[in-house]
Structure formats: C-alpha cells, structure tokens
Nucleic acid binder design. Sequence first.
DNA 1: TTGTAGGCGTTATCAT
DNA 2: ATGATAACGCCTACAA
Lengths: 344, 344
Amino acid sequence: LRKPVTVREVAKRAGVAISSVSRVVNDVPTVAADVRERVLAAIHELGWTPNLAAQHMRGISTRMIGFMFPDIRNPLYATMVQGAEDFLIEHGYMVMVASTNGSSERELALLDLFAKRGADGIILTVGDETNPAVIDRIGSGTLPVVLLEREMPTLVNAVGVDHFDGALRATGHLLSLGHRRIALITGGNGNRVARDRVAGVRKAHVAHHVELDPSLIRVQSFATAYAFRETQMLMGLPAAPTAILAFGMHTFPGVLSALRLLGLAVPRDISLIASNDCDLAQLATPAITVIRYDAYALGREAAGLLLRQLSGDVLQDGTRVQLATEFILRESCAPPQHLQENHE
Amino acid sequence: LRKPVTVREVAKRAGVAISSVSRVVNDVPTVAADVRERVLAAIHELGWTPNLAAQHMRGISTRMIGFMFPDIRNPLYATMVQGAEDFLIEHGYMVMVASTNGSSERELALLDLFAKRGADGIILTVGDETNPAVIDRIGSGTLPVVLLEREMPTLVNAVGVDHFDGALRATGHLLSLGHRRIALITGGNGNRVARDRVAGVRKAHVAHHVELDPSLIRVQSFATAYAFRETQMLMGLPAAPTAILAFGMHTFPGVLSALRLLGLAVPRDISLIASNDCDLAQLATPAITVIRYDAYALGREAAGLLLRQLSGDVLQDGTRVQLATEFILRESCAPPQHLQENHE
DNA sequence: TTGTAGGCGTTATCAT
DNA sequence: ATGATAACGCCTACAA
C-alpha cells in the first residue's frame, strides 16, 4: 500500500550519498567499514530491496530463463522443467515457461518474446530440427540457448540422453535371447531421439549378424492411439515380431493394451521392453523391462550448461552433454516361443 | 548485436517529438493523421518496439503471471499450467513457474520473489491451507491471487473441482449395487480436496442409510506406495471392503497393483472407481470406472478469473469457480460377491 | 574514500 | 495538436 522505499531514502537514513549505498550492496571493496555498517543498518530498518526494473534498465541481468517445449503435459518435459527449475532457483533465477505445440512459428514468436522480456537465456526442445528460420535464429546467438533432446546444424549447445546406447543394449538383449523379428514402436520421426534409437536398433542387428526388417520400424508418433494401432497391425503380420521395443511415455500403454486385447501373454507370446520407466512398467504383471533415464537430471544439466554459458565459462560452440541410460531387467523378456518349446 | 532502437530515433526519423511517438503507440486520440502515419512508418522501418523494462519502471504492467504448486511433475498440475498458459499467452501474458514442494516457507519466499519481479498476479496451490503466515500474506491483497484446488480462511478467489459431488455419485453408485463396505484411499489430508471427497462419501452413506466405517477412510498420501500398502492392509481386514475408491493420479496404480498381487479380480472380487481419468484406467482390463474432471479447463478458469480480477471486473472477495465432474461408467464395478452368488 | 551528476527508455505533465 | 522536459530507481564515471 505505501510506496516502496528507494536508495535515496536509504542514503538519507544512513547519512551518506546514494552512490555509497549502491557500492555497499554491489560489494565494491573501497568502502569504509562504518559507512558499510550504517548503510546495511538503514537497509535493514527500511526493508529496502533494489528495484529490479530499474536495474534491468541499466542493463543488469533479469535472472530469468525461458523454457520452451511442445507440451508440458508430457511428464518427461514436466520432469525436465522441475529439474531445471530446482537448479535455477538455487542460483537466483526464475523460469518462464511457454509451450509451442511443436509449431516452429510459435517457437520463433516465443524466442522474440523471451528476448523482449530480457530473458538471460533459453532452454528449449524444438519441434522441427530442420526449420531454417528456427535454425537461423538460434544460431544467430542473440540469446544464449541450450537445446534439450535435439540437435541442429548450427552452433548451439545441447543436452540429451544416449538413446543410441539404450536402444543398442535393449535390442542386443533381445537378439541374445534368440529373437530375430524385433519391432520398434516410437515417435519423434526426424528428430535426434528417433534417429538415435533407430541407429541403436540397427547397430545391434549388425553386431549380431541379423537382418533388420524395415517394416518393423514404426516411428511416426508418440500417441497412445498410434502405438495401439501399430501393435495390432504388427501382430497381424504373417511374420509377426516376437518382441517389441515400446519407446515413449504414451507408447508403452498403447502397446500393452493392444497385446492384452489380442490375448497375447508377456513374455510367453511376446517380449517387451519399454522406455522411459514409469509406474505402469514397475507395477504391471509381469513387471516390464525398461530403458530408464533421468529426465530430472537432464533438466538440471541443461540449466547448468546454460548458466556456465552465461558466465562465459563455456561458449555456445556445440558442446553436448549426454546422459547415460540404465537397462533395467525385469520379467517381460523371454526367448521367442519356438525356442521355449525346444526346452519343454 | 547492434544496440536496440529507441523512441528518440523513431522521433527523429519521423520528424516529430518523442512525445508524439508515445502518443501514437499509446493510442492517444488527439494526434493528427499525418503525424500518426509518419510515426507508424518510422516505427516500421526501424523495427522499434518499446523497451519493457523502461515501461515497467514507469509503472506499466509486466504482463507476467506467477504459477506456484508443489510439484509440476504431477500431471494434474502440469495440465493446469498448460491450460493457464494457453489462456494467458492469448492475452499477452507470460507465465513464470516455481514449485514449492508443499513447503509454506518456500511459498512465502516465492510470493515475495514474484512480487519483486513485478508479477501482475499469482495462481497457486498451497501445501498447507492453515499456515497463518501464508493466509496472512495472501489475504493482505498485496498481489492479486487465485487459489487452485484449495480454500483459505481469508478473502481470496479460488477455482476448484466439485469433488464432493464426484465422490457422492461414485459412492452412491457403489451403494446402489449393494456394497456396504466401501474404502476410500486418497491423499491431501487437511486440504479442501480431501475434505470434499470424504464429505461426499459420507453424504452418500447417509442418503442410503448405511453406516460408514471410519477405518475404511485412508487419506494420508497421494503416493503410489501409500496406496499400495493401504490396499493390502484393507484387504487383509477381517471385514474387508468390497469396493475401493482410489482417488489421485498415483493412488490408482498403487491400488491396482496391490489387488493384482493379492490375486483379486476386478470387479468380481472387488469393485473399483478411480479419479482422475488416465490412460491406465481406460486401457486396463477391465476398463476402470472413473470420476473425470478437466484439469486443463481448471487452469484456464484460474487464469481467466485472475485476469478478470486484474481488470477490476471482479474483486478478490472470495469468488469461487467450481468445475463439475463427470462419472464415467466402465467395467470395474459389480454387485458385491455375496449378491453375485445369489444370482447364480 | 566519498559525493555529484548524467543517463538508461519510457510516459506524462506542462506549456505553447 | 505538438514539443520540451521532468520524473521513474538505479548504476557509474568522474570529480573532489
């Protein structure tokens, strides 16, 4: 209700000039002990805090970081936001969020908005890695940027998960069990995540000298409905897969429900590996083998990289932080049926 | 790279005084048509936009809204944020998020931080409705506030879901089927949500002249592990419940997995109603009857109420917007076993 | 070591 | 109708 106190009043109260107050709060060394004390006392008594808008106008950082992603309802993004937010708040930053629905136009508009609002930097997951306008804008270096789970053909730092290794290990496990027809259902076609996963699956096949049937690779959408439909189509194939890699928070429930509907038992009739880990994977019967990664840590890493970038510690030069995955063996994988029968 | 253009340059380019530029952009009516045109042209040519920090220092709104909740990883909060954000961005606002982990101290600190950063208003879900310091701060009216899924004994506007009615209908449905021992497992003890749900369950029992066994009410935590444990304990009771109300995004998976572990079939051995709706409830076999509500709409409503409050359209006077629930009948409820046997 | 004064970019008040 | 100018609150040369 009463108007906020300013440096001027603090200075008067302490009996010094306003520049002395400024020097005290900005830790300028050349200030007499008694002055410092009087100023500090006055600040405390008056409850003064510097006006951020005025500071900002003087070119001082706003200590705000922008966070952009397609949709925060995706628990993966929500978890990353939480990780970044926890880290940033510890360092005196606040985070502004905005969702893009994957639209490049919205991304461009929001990049502008964040800049106009004086954000110190941006963490973002672009919808389309190949959009020239977005690439250009990010590469222009107007605003420090860290890319999350994406890569772009321009100088930008990024953090991501080692999905290649995750897919490699999961596929290798299935191949070792004797599977020869392994389906991959996931989304993000055209993005780094899908590329890495497909590459991992492919590499594992090469290593095991098994040919990979491209018709078993379904990477068009993360939607549950897509996973549900593709599973039914795959299992209806003359040569149906004996194992499924279901990657994506919403992919796995779709696959599981389709298998149930078809009356297929896991792992007897079909083996299953999901990613990321979740309640359902842990609590399903049987519990589902998963590739796990730490989305929270990913968010923290992104924030950390951005802050190091802001401090000039690292440049925006294409540095990439890659987080490892964990392969968690549970009960959803077994040798394919013809091999099981051999043992009976 | 090149420093941003200012009104001064625009004025020079248009051959007018800076005050004329200001008048044009702020739609002051008393301005000659030719001046307006020249100014607009100059603005366009130079690509000028007003400096927000300078405006802010002049006391103009920052058009930023703060959003506080315990943890954005909870998909319910994430969905609310998305709803609010979509609405707010349409109206030229950006949203800053901060999570509190339910701590009242953090809430107080963040309330300060948001205020210092010039947020126009706050949408929040407090962890503890009874914390005097928080009540006081919110009631002080320093910053416009809308409460989400909570209520407080002070003058504050709120939006929430009609959990009372939801619980009433769900419980009524079970009682009509003949159930006489109905358990409630959920969290949020001490908060409006839990209060409403318990009241709804109670009211339904009164309406059906059935006594409610208080030992069947478990409202201590939303954690999956809690739900899992309580389900096992409840089903181990000499007089075990014949139906369970599992309210909470993480409650339901916990209950379901406990029931599976015990080898209990839904709905033959036990009936089950969950809330909110989710993938798992739709895709489980059998599909689970749920109380559904629209968290996205809830977020939008909160943002809408806050904006009306900012425009002076409504006061911060305890207005409450209540969203209805939907009761979605699926296949997880049947008469209790002794009544089923009568029919065989 | 401390104080004075100018300027950041905008809006608003006052003359004209 | 328009132009000059004084704030807004802070930081920082520069002067003392």
